[in-house]
Design a protein around this nucleic acid. Structure first.
Lengths: 263, 263
DNA sequence: CGATTCCTTGAGGCATCTCAAGGCAAGTGG
DNA sequence: CCACTTGCCTTGAGATGCCTCAAGGAATCG
């Protein structure tokens, strides 16, 4: 059995020119600290592995790659060779629709893996842009597949991560399909809050790394509506907001249907 | 290596009561014809396998299950044990949002696989309801995983199908986030047209199996807006519509931006 | 034949978008 | 250090696309 031979259907092992800077793995900028000792191991790839599974991942010796604010790790259309796990910083993933419009499809923070959308066609369908100076682990997909065949639990972990991504998008579809502006922004804030908390930060006080326009693009709203809705929340005592800094989030209040709140 | 042991994280091998009728596989209603000779083998699971791969799948002897119009194959919250491939008929997949609203997240036709959203938590996150009398292949996931470890290409096929699902949802998100009613319905019709054509039916003349309300739920519109937009398309000569029968689709016209059309 | 379901069409309301103006903070060059 | 630019955010006012509410027609079914 040679899993690596079928790893990527379109451009399996050929190195092709990239529009961005050369892929990090070809530069070997710095080996990543081992998965087994990584601060994010419970949130990231090793998360669902049986005891000792993280050590298996260590053998792959992922390289690290630094990305400056505004730079992209991969671009829509790039040949797929690597998954990328966020180590530090945060990213937005954007896609271009048939009519040429750009839209944010995801925000990614530490411990989250980017690139699963590229498996189907062997090319990335989104562009991942750093919202602040950031660092990613560069995970060669063919090597991961090869390890997959030997490491118990790893295939399920990968399936599970992809499945989770499908469910995440379901939630976003429900949001876009049937919520008003207040509900959308509240859901967004509660989601960010949960992810901040899971990473050891405050659930009620944090910095948003993305602009109003990016939030709007993600939520299917204009930046003006996002701004107005923030102001409305503050007016109703659900949070304090100063540009990108939100604090005193009323998690219960934001989670309640609009009608059920004291006005 | 015992992949089956980690197949489903929450409810791996335990048979639990289901809200619907008993799962088809426990009834062994009828063995499915072999994948290798199935009419949909190029669209379905065997699609990306190397030559001979479909024979491997044959050994799993999937059972078939008949589903009447309005009945569901699985329900939101059901323990996950099977993937389901549509053999005949069509389905809608619906999910419940936090505020209790139901929304259609997908329509499925012959050769399409349902259930990938359930891998992450071991429970289905959607309900799959037949839009007409239908038949599905019942694919035991643990057996598929076990075969996966021996059958070259199968892991990639599964990853690829899940990745394709992620990309599909990206498209839907773009649609919901940034298109108006005409663009949404046009995109929906073009998508259905492509899928009909891929199954040997006319690309410009087919029956919709879902109601206006279901289309609306899928597209984030009300049923009245869907109806009005159909009428508008007909008025502009882009199609003829009579209830659920659409014909004479102007594929180029529907694919053009609204402004670019002759009014 | 009545009940039910689904579709179509109309009229009015409203949430959000569009367009526009101005403020604030950070960066840049003289 | 200050004038200027630039990017981002906020707020207002008016326009509009879609929703809501309502009525009626057509097909299906018991």
């Amino acid at each position: 059995m040679h899993p690596a031979q079928n790893a990527v259907t379109v451009q399996p092992l050929v190195f092709v020119p990239s529009t961005g800077p050369a892929p990090g793995a070809t530069q070997h900028p710095a080996p990543a600290p081992a998965c087994s000792t990584c601060r994010h191991k419970d949130l990231c790839l090793p998360g669902g592995l049986p005891p000792g599974g993280a050590q298996d991942l260590d053998r792959l010796m992922f390289s690290r790659r630094r990305v400056r604010r505004g730079e992209s790790v991969f671009r829509e259309g790039d040949a797929f060779r690597f998954l990328h796990a966020v180590r530090t910083g945060s990213f937005k993933c954007t896609a271009t629709s048939t009519d040429g419009g750009q839209q944010v499809t995801a925000f990614r923070v530490a411990g989250e893996v980017m690139g699963f959308d590229a498996l189907a066609r062997g090319r990335h369908t989104t562009t991942a842009t750093a919202l602040e100076d950031a660092e990613v682990c560069v995970i060669p997909y063919t090597q991961l597949l090869a390890l997959s065949a030997r490491s118990p639990g790893l295939p399920q972990v990968l399936s599970s991560l992809m499945s989770r991504e499908i469910v995440r998008e379901h939630h976003l579809m429900m949001l876009l399909g049937s919520m008003n502006a207040e509900e959308r922004l509240a859901a967004f804030l509660l989601n960010m809050s949960r992810r901040m908390q899971a990473r050891g930060f405050s659930a009620t006080d944090f910095h948003l790394r993305m602009s109003r326009a990016e939030i709007g693009s993600y939520l299917g709203l204009t930046l003006e509506t996002v701004s107005r809705t923030f102001s409305g929340f503050q007016h109703h005592g659900l949070l304090h907001v100063d540009k990108k800094h939100v604090r005193d989030l009323d998690l219960d209040g934001l989670g309640s249907p609009v009608g059920a709140r004291e006005h």
